[in-house]
């Protein structure tokens, strides 16, 4: 109930480009009071003020919650970066690789009220889709999170392959993400997996990022053509495993590590974005409240002045 009210009001707070006109209109509609009434009723303005005050309390509380959650997630995110760095050092990152079957994994959040991070992910994914699609090529989406799913539903229904929600019921952990990564690997055919997420830079800065994971066959093909992957042959392989097996294991593990980091980075960005969004909302509510209070007091004062002058002029008329 409170959340629904917040959402309704929150949109007005954030989106209304000129809140002052809004505040004034509430008062103006009041000034067309019924004929013969002595003064303007300030009831509606008072109601509006109390509702704005309540919304401000809620947004402030949400900001505090996001801030305290952010702290723990941020350390975990920073630690998880150590998981993918060795892979990038070994295999490099090849965002420009041209392959037939592409899978775009868009990481978004389940909850809203967190600024533009979900639409950023969706926009980047759709651009990537255009870049990778072409004749004889196939690109599919795997969407994590409710908010991203809703945005893809509008025009990319046909290319959806999997959607995953409710990932953040419990605190994120590696086991969970790796089971998810396993599910994704089993359900899609790919030459390259591209994970799109918001990388956490600071509380106010999130960088849309693409991580590319190549299938073992593509890695082999690329390594034959030289480049960074060409150095793979200089590694000695222990045991009786063949290079193909090692590469397959490596790809799977790389994918689950990348996913873990991507999901954490995105969760961290979400909290940061929510924090600043809620901070803005509280500030806007404060501004609005100031304006409302000003109009309220002015109207009240005007009514008092009118009454006083009526009384004085009445008294003056009688005494003469």
């Amino acid at each position: 109930m409170a959340m629904a009210a917040l959402r309704k009001e929150g949109r007005r707070l954030v989106l209304s480009s000129n809140p002052s006109s809004f505040a004034r209109s509430a008062v103006f509609s009041e000034e067309s009071c019924p004929f013969g009434a002595r003064s303007v009723s300030t009831q509606i303005v008072r109601n509006r003020m109390s509702s704005v005050k309540n919304i401000q309390k809620i947004t402030k509380a949400m900001k505090m919650v996001a801030a305290s959650k952010l702290r723990s997630v941020q350390t975990r995110t920073e630690n998880s970066r150590g998981l993918w760095q060795p892979f990038t050092a070994l295999l490099g990152d090849a965002p420009g690789v041209d392959v037939k079957k592409n899978v775009i994994i868009a990481v978004s959040s389940d909850k809203g009220l967190c600024g533009g991070i979900n639409s950023t992910t969706v926009k980047v994914s759709k651009t990537l889709f255009k870049l990778t699609s072409g004749p004889e090529k196939e690109t599919k989406y795997v969407v994590l999170g409710e908010k991203g799913k809703v945005q893809f539903l509008r025009d990319s229904k046909k290319s959806m392959e999997l959607s995953v929600t409710e990932l953040q019921k419990n605190p994120l952990n590696y086991t969970q993400v790796s089971v998810l990564a396993d599910d994704i690997l089993k359900n899609v055919e790919y030459d390259a997996l591209r994970i799109v997420y918001n990388k956490f830079h600071s509380v106010v800065q999130f960088i849309p990022t693409i991580s590319t994971i190549l299938s073992p066959e593509v890695v082999e093909r690329e390594s034959e053509s030289g480049g960074r992957l060409g150095d793979l042959d200089s590694y000695e392989i222990e045991g009786a495993e063949t290079k193909a097996e090692v590469l397959q294991n490596l790809t799977e593990f790389q994918f689950s590590c990348m996913m873990f980091n991507a999901v954490l980075e995105n969760a961290c960005s979400e909290l940061g974005a929510r924090m600043s969004a809620m901070d803005n909302a509280s500030r806007n509510a404060g501004d609005m409240l100031d304006r409302l209070t000003l109009t309220y007091n002015r109207t009240r004062q005007a009514a008092i002045t009118t009454e006083l002058s009526e009384i004085i002029s009445g008294a003056a008329a009688l005494s003469h």
């Binding site: 419990n170 952990n173 998810l180």
Partner: peptide, 12 residues
């Protein structure tokens, strides 16, 4: 507690 797994997947 680090082993808890919960999410929902739907195939399209």
């Amino acid at each position: 507690s680090r082993e808890k797994v919960h999410f929902s997947v739907s195939k399209w």
